[in-house]
Simulated assay, not measured.
Amino acid sequence: MMLLPKLSACGLAVGLVLAAPAFAHDEILIKAVVENTGGDNAIAIGHGCEDTHLPIRAQSVVFPTKNPELIASDGHTITDLSEIIGPSVYAGQVDTIQDRNIFNKQHEKHDKLGNAIGFYGMDGRLGTTLQGRVPFQFTAPGFAATSCATALKIEVAIADICDFTAPTIQAGKVNLWIPDNGSQYANLGGPQNIDGIGEPPIFQVTRNLTTNPLPNGCGAGFTVTVRPSAADVDAHLGIPGWHY
């Protein structure tokens, strides 16, 4: 008579484990937004530096900037992002939300025109096995009415830093959730088997096909991947006291 309650409790425990969210790596918490909308979002940190069991002490985040890589799903060449989202230079507008849950110091990254291109946090501590949330606000761009694009898939480059001592690009000192597209960070980190290279977080801006339908002749349209270039990553991923 005691067997059934034990089995039920065991089944419940398994169900809770299966239902619990788990992030194998850094992700964008809200993975899809509609064009011309804005709201709060967050970087979801999956774990610290597992090889050394060190906590994350700093984080650097870079969004695609002036010269991103543009990859159309149908294979055609896109020469400028303005073909897809009109006069906007960027794949959106990012703003930092003040939050000291993980990092005591927060700063935005800006280009020469003062546009926000990312952010970083320092003086923090996130345990190796714990998940973290780093909030930010994102305003999605609108699609050009003449474009056949149905969605932007935006890749974000992120470094989670556990140890600032040189040499900095080593497994157990940093996780690099960045494109594997020729940056110094990727080139140095690849042979070190650093976690995350080639696995940048991705989130999507979708076209509102009701208010902004595709032009005649577009068929089903295409999607566009917007990726920080190697030059973007090399120029902007580093933060005070840490770089490749």
Score class of each variant (00 low, 15 high):
residue 6 K to Q: 13
residue 6 K to W: 12
residue 7 L to S: 06
residue 11 G to I: 12
residue 16 L to V: 14
residue 16 L to R: 08
residue 16 L to Y: 13
residue 17 V to N: 09
residue 18 L to W: 08
residue 20 A to R: 04
residue 22 A to I: 05
residue 23 F to M: 12
residue 31 K to R: 04
residue 36 N to H: 07
residue 37 T to L: 03
residue 38 G to T: 02
residue 42 A to N: 07
residue 43 I to G: 02
residue 43 I to H: 06
residue 51 D to R: 07
residue 54 L to R: 12
residue 60 S to N: 08
residue 60 S to T: 12
residue 62 V to Q: 08
residue 80 D to R: 07
residue 86 G to H: 10
residue 89 V to R: 07
residue 90 Y to M: 01
residue 95 D to W: 08
residue 99 D to R: 06
residue 100 R to G: 15
residue 104 N to D: 13
residue 106 Q to N: 11
residue 110 H to N: 08
residue 112 K to Q: 11
residue 114 G to A: 05
residue 118 G to D: 06
residue 119 F to A: 07
residue 123 D to E: 04
residue 124 G to S: 05
residue 125 R to H: 13
residue 127 G to Q: 05
residue 128 T to P: 05
residue 130 L to F: 15
residue 131 Q to V: 09
residue 134 V to T: 11
residue 135 P to C: 04
residue 139 T to S: 11
residue 140 A to S: 02
residue 141 P to W: 06
residue 142 G to A: 08
residue 143 F to S: 03
residue 144 A to G: 06
residue 145 A to W: 02
residue 145 A to K: 12
residue 147 S to A: 04
residue 148 C to M: 03
residue 149 A to W: 01
residue 150 T to L: 02
residue 151 A to T: 01
residue 152 L to H: 03
residue 153 K to C: 01
residue 153 K to M: 05
residue 157 A to N: 06
residue 158 I to L: 11
residue 162 C to T: 02
residue 165 T to A: 09
residue 165 T to H: 03
residue 167 P to Y: 09
residue 175 N to V: 08
residue 177 W to C: 02
residue 180 D to N: 15
residue 182 G to A: 12
residue 183 S to V: 10
residue 186 A to P: 09
residue 190 G to L: 14
residue 191 P to W: 13
residue 192 Q to R: 12
residue 192 Q to Y: 06
residue 193 N to K: 15
residue 195 D to I: 11
residue 198 G to V: 11
residue 198 G to S: 11
residue 199 E to W: 03
residue 201 P to T: 01
residue 204 Q to H: 06
residue 212 N to R: 10
residue 214 L to G: 08
residue 221 G to P: 04
residue 221 G to W: 00
residue 221 G to N: 03
residue 222 F to N: 05
residue 230 A to L: 03
residue 230 A to S: 13
residue 236 H to S: 13
residue 237 L to P: 02
residue 237 L to R: 02
residue 238 G to T: 10
